[in-house]
């Protein structure tokens, strides 16, 4: 158990430190693409991705750095991609919103809300037809549940009994638009999902280990029963919708709400929990940070040193031969 807790700590710290570094360096104007940070939401990425198998499929959204890193995606290639370099995971064609690492079956993140949901369902169909015991994990935000394609996908997953884990990260906002503007007050994703035949739970939990345990239990169930499950996790992003800044000055979110979430920061909460239960020492945490810091530094160095793709490359890869 100790091991998994350390892994979880390493993952949430890795995601946080990578994104803090992106935020710090964004002003150098070398990362020239829309970049959606998941600072504040790390526990879900880490808890979910460590609870599924290495060869399970994951698809994700515009806010995908956390999912990619948690699944084990190559950090150097991710940073290089955000820098638009030819060594990037998508060779510079995709940027922050189009990450892929097929070595760890991170099958792609796409930039249109809801777009990757049916793609993940298709991977679930493939797994079922191949009987390879893989499951497909689909990350999406709560705004995607306002789209038709989400219901179409849920319907098909239930109809065909597909091995799919739907992971909804509910961070309460679609850009600046709050839930009040977008969804009826009593709307319950859990009830909607259950009534469509997809077992569902809502989780308001910030401890990454708890998230891990819950996901582990349901991932096993999906694999065993070949039936989809939907988990809705409540969470909060600290930064602006897109970009490196804190935008609390815009006042679209209440100060009390921000404080409430900041006070249960997933990293602080988990560190406190680990120290209190003597699972790690302060020194061990420092060592973990040091190790991550050096990895992050070298990833940025790699990205900066890498070459831009040639303008000619824009004309390649339109069709596969």
């Amino acid at each position: 158990m100790k091991n998994i807790q350390k892994n979880l700590l390493e993952k949430i710290k890795l995601i946080r430190m990578v994104e803090e570094e992106i935020s710090n360096k964004y002003f150098e104007n070398k990362m020239r693409c829309p970049t959606h940070l998941s600072i504040g939401q790390e526990a879900i990425s880490a808890g979910v991705c460590l609870a599924i198998n290495n060869n399970d499929y994951v698809v994700s959204t515009h806010r995908s750095h956390g999912h990619y890193l948690a699944k084990g995606g190559n950090i150097k290639k991710m940073i290089a991609e955000i820098y638009g370099k030819e060594t990037g995971c998508s060779n510079g064609y995709g940027g922050s919103m189009h990450l892929i690492d097929k070595n760890v079956n991170f099958m792609g993140s796409t930039a249109i809300v809801g777009n990757s949901i049916p793609v993940g369902v298709g991977l679930g169909v493939a797994a079922k037809l191949k009987k390879n015991k893989k499951i497909s994990t689909i990350f999406f935000g709560e705004a995607a549940t306002e789209q038709g394609v989400f219901y179409e996908s849920l319907n098909f997953a239930a109809l065909k009994n597909l091995p799919i884990l739907f992971i909804c990260e509910n961070n309460l906002y679609s850009v600046y638009s709050s839930l009040n503007e977008r969804q009826p007050k009593k709307r319950s994703l859990k009830n909607i999902s259950s009534s469509m035949g997809v077992e569902s739970i809502k989780v308001d939990e910030i401890n990454v280990h708890e998230i891990y345990k819950i996901t582990k239990k349901y991932a096993a169930k999906v694999r065993r029963t070949n039936k989809p499950v939907l988990i809705e996790f409540m969470t909060y992003r600290y930064r602006e919708h897109c970009g490196p800044n804190n935008d609390d000055n815009l006042r679209y979110r209440k100060r009390s709400e921000i404080n409430k979430w900041r006070n249960k920061d997933p990293i602080k909460v988990f560190e406190k929990f680990l120290l209190k239960n003597k699972i790690v020492t302060k020194e061990e945490i420092l060592n973990i940070e040091k190790k991550i810091y050096s990895n992050v530094k070298s990833a940025f160095k790699y990205a900066e040193k890498s070459m831009f793709p040639s303008p000619r490359n824009a004309f390649k890869n339109i069709f596969a031969d």
Binding site: G88, C89, S90, N91, G92, Y93, G94, H98, I100, K102, M107, G108, T110, K316, N317, I318, F319, A320
Partner: peptide
């Protein structure tokens, strides 16, 4: 798909 992932798929 093929283009935006740099030909990876």
């Amino acid at each position: 798909w093929h283009y935006m992932f740099g030909g990876k798929d």
